[in-house]
Design a protein around this nucleic acid. Structure first.
Lengths: 199, 199
DNA sequence: GTCTATAAGTTGATAGAC
DNA sequence: GTCTATCAACTTATAGAC
């Protein structure tokens, strides 16, 4: 059955979000005009407003989707509690590197464009970020309770480790010298030692 | 001797740079207009062009000054080579946290606004960043040679540690629960263990 | 759903008076 | 060294034709 001429609601929406994410990551939210997004999609600027009420909401929804997918993906990948803190920490380390390197644009935008969120949108994204940090904090606390980890400030250690792991995105390239598996192993080695109870 | 009315070249220049740094950090380079910088300084927009040829150069000079001060401060603070890799690593860790928390705006701008640099300016800033990473890489390699550190990829470990240490800026507040000295000690404990040769 | 046209405002940078 | 005035280009968002 032929579609109404010029009607592409089922595919234009995703393409708008993809174009916006890519352009925001490369040039920054404030530098990217609605016209540039439209040009990337292949429509006129006015057509974008069928898919977002305004530019701010477009940014916010990209960030919210990313953070919620991150949380859902970890909750689906996390080992069961009986596996222990050490196994959970290794799983978290490898998950974080794998998930974030595959979504470099979304990670970048979700961190760099926090300044450009309206206050209420900022609060929501910050809450999701805290939720993610809390997942790692709980793993560290569990390892301490088990006597496997020596961590005096689990919240701060969680933030420190996440910062270290996210830093992979600044240099890792898919076709580089090291495979993703090798990178995971290198970072897991540092993470493990950084929190291990040696004595 | 009375100054020509309206002439303030000796103090307006620094104030322009301070206002630009603060506004760029808070709102982002692309979101801050020359008029807003001028308003913060208390002059009209046209007057700014006595101190910078254009907005791009203003950004670049802020970033270049920051990176060169960072390198110069470390080179002045670094312990002598005979102190050994372990002492150098502790000095680097504490220096990085102390210097960067005291210049949070410049650190933030120098990382977040890389996208908004012209290609030739970008290359210069990236070169300075690599120089700084190389300082830490050399410390790690020295510790490995001494048998104190177990690090198979010193360059990657250097980038990982710098990312972790710079992350302090996202949560540290001067009047928070932990003093800067306590934060330094917490991070040094993690850094030390992350690279230590356990035998 | 997409288009064209438009409103109303902002932008970086310059010219020339003082 | 700073001001006012200005330019040409660009911005987000909307209205209404198709």
């Amino acid at each position: 059955m032929a579609r109404t001429q010029g009607s592409h609601s089922d595919i234009t929406g995703p393409r708008v979000r993809e174009a916006a994410l890519s352009l925001f990551a490369r040039h920054g939210y404030a530098s990217v005009s609605m016209r540039k997004i439209a040009a990337e999609v292949g429509v006129q600027a006015g057509a974008l407003y069928n898919y977002t009420p305004d530019k701010q909401t477009l940014l916010f929804e990209l960030m919210r989707a990313h953070m919620e997918e991150l949380l859902a993906a970890w909750d689906a990948a996390a080992p069961p509690p009986e596996a222990g803190g050490q196994a959970a920490l290794e799983a978290f380390t490898r998950f974080h590197i794998r998930f974030n390197t595959r979504r470099a644009d979304a990670v970048f935008v979700s961190y760099m464009e926090l300044r450009n969120l309206d206050p209420e949108n900022f609060s929501i994204i910050e809450g999701l970020r805290r939720d993610y940090e809390t997942r790692l904090e709980a793993i560290l606390s569990r390892g301490v309770a088990e006597g496997r980890f020596a961590v005096t400030e689990p919240r701060i250690a969680a933030m420190a480790l996440i910062a270290m792991l996210t830093g992979v995105n600044t240099w890792f390239r898919e076709r580089g010298r090291l495979s993703l598996g090798q990178v995971e192993a290198l970072y897991w080695d540092m993470v493990r030692r950084a929190v291990a109870n040696q004595g």
